[in-house]
Design a protein around this nucleic acid. Structure first.
Lengths: 277, 277
DNA sequence: AAGTGGTCTAGACCACTAT
DNA sequence: TAGTGGTCTAGACCACTTA
């Protein structure tokens, strides 16, 4: 007991228990503010606060005018960051062959590297970089944001603006909601995916420029979305994002780095590692 | 304008702007409830709510009796999930050579596989598995929780309980709060790591049992901590966890799977991928 | 002693949903 | 039309920090 147990926590704990032990099934209605005040003998504030906390935890959702309901645990679609082979990756039937159509808008420009980006690309203080913003959409819904940085002089980052099915930096090699909802479908467009599937996105382009990408490093963190991100991805309140900071290396030289932002309530990242013995 | 802009959002937006554009530096005090009501001409509830939202976003922290302060962005320590070589991984000086001492408590038992675990291990309905709970601590503070599952019959999961410096399932190959709390530097605590650093944790033990681990798959998601996790990891309110679901494969057979829970406000995961051309 | 955050009460308005 | 969630007001108590 921290301070003899706030009242609203009693309510929260009780409802949470009912949800996790199955007394309240997904979709079931949760007592309203008025009902909570009566049932637990608390004030409106405590009842309100309890519902707010449960909603922030993602256990319930409020529909204004209707009530709060136990939230069906959303299926987290797999986002394969890089894949070696297809076998295993044992999700159940959560993935239908729903042919998700992934499209990508992008916008390129040159800019002065921020200290952060300069460090990641091992550039000097005021270096200029090519910056490209990507917005990926699946079935129209925004799926992922990405901002890619390259030192200038490596190659042409592409047209100033483009739209359509394209393999950007973000979805990465094995993208798509499925190991292959149509893997076939895979990422998009691009040339049909071959066995060398790793060479997608920037790696493919860099290779075409004569740059040999030898290693890809991804750093994954969770954080609160910035307002712009929350807006662009149409995130419900309380949802975190997965932020992937990815760098392509050619030997010991970073040749591209990007920040990839993914809704945490809809996706999980999958990394596969072959153990050489 | 969704519904003509709630009042508290005006306050939130204004303070957030000051924080992100540097008008309010980390550590600076944020106006109190009373000050907000005067400054913005809003009621106590709106002021209170605004502070609560900003705190939930991780932008400010409240110290009871003192006030709210702009939160210093915490340094996210790198957690190398598997590493190929050491070069690059360009964080700046964020990692001092602070010799973090990682310890691990564990508790083993046998249990009936849940449907989820049975699916992940490709077992039949009522199979029994060896379940081991791990709690990792660095400098005494809890760092990571892990629960490992193995089909029975693969080998002895170890003594019923143990404590001390040990390589569990969780910290994984490239363990530790740091690549070595000294990044460049190397590997980490534990016994001198060899070039075959991937073989740590369960992989090493499974290998010793004659099982050849060929692949490791990790699924990363972000979610709200369960109360038990929040307690065990001493998480502040509002922080998410990174949940890693890891499976070791021997050929096309899963031989171990674990759920690894990591505080999202203190760590970032690092994955490295060698591109073979 | 004054100020603060965390909690709490009692009540209210609005837009929306359900019936 | 009644009920609901989201928002909001005006106060209040307590434990705590600060001075």
């Amino acid at each position: 007991m921290a301070t003899s147990d706030p009242v609203y926590l009693r309510v929260v704990a009780d409802i949470r228990r009912q949800i996790v032990d199955g007394s309240l099934l997904p979709g079931a209605p949760v007592p309203s503010r008025a009902q909570l005040t009566r049932k637990y003998g608390v004030g409106e504030t405590a009842a309100r606060h309890a519902l707010r906390v449960l909603a922030a935890e993602g256990l319930i959702v409020g529909r204004v005018g209707s009530g709060h309901y136990v939230r069906a645990q959303p299926v987290l679609l797999p986002l394969h960051r890089w894949r070696l082979h297809d076998h295993h990756v044992p999700f159940g039937a959560d993935l239908g062959p729903e042919d998700v159509r992934v499209t990508c808008d992008r916008r390129s420009e040159t800019a002065t590297a921020t200290p952060d980006i300069a460090l990641r690309l091992r550039l000097g203080g005021c270096a200029t970089v090519a910056r490209t913003h990507y917005v990926f959409r699946g079935d129209g819904r925004p799926i992922q944001l990405a901002t890619s940085y390259e030192p200038v002089g490596l190659g042409d980052p592409g047209p100033g603006a483009g739209s359509g099915s394209a393999s950007g930096p973000g979805l990465g090699p094995g993208l798509g909601p499925g190991p292959g909802p149509g893997p076939g479908p895979g990422p998009g467009p691009g040339p049909g995916p071959g066995p060398d599937e790793h060479l997608r996105g920037p790696a493919a382009r860099l290779t075409a420029l004569g740059i040999k990408v030898t290693e890809i490093v991804e750093q994954v963190r969770t954080r609160v979305p910035q307002p712009a991100e929350s807006d662009a991805l149409a995130l419900p309140a309380g949802v975190h994002v997965l932020h992937v900071e990815r760098t392509h290396w050619a030997g010991d030289r970073p040749v591209e780095t990007s920040d990839i932002v993914i809704p945490g309530d809809r996706f999980r990242l999958i990394y596969t590692h072959a153990v050489q013995q």
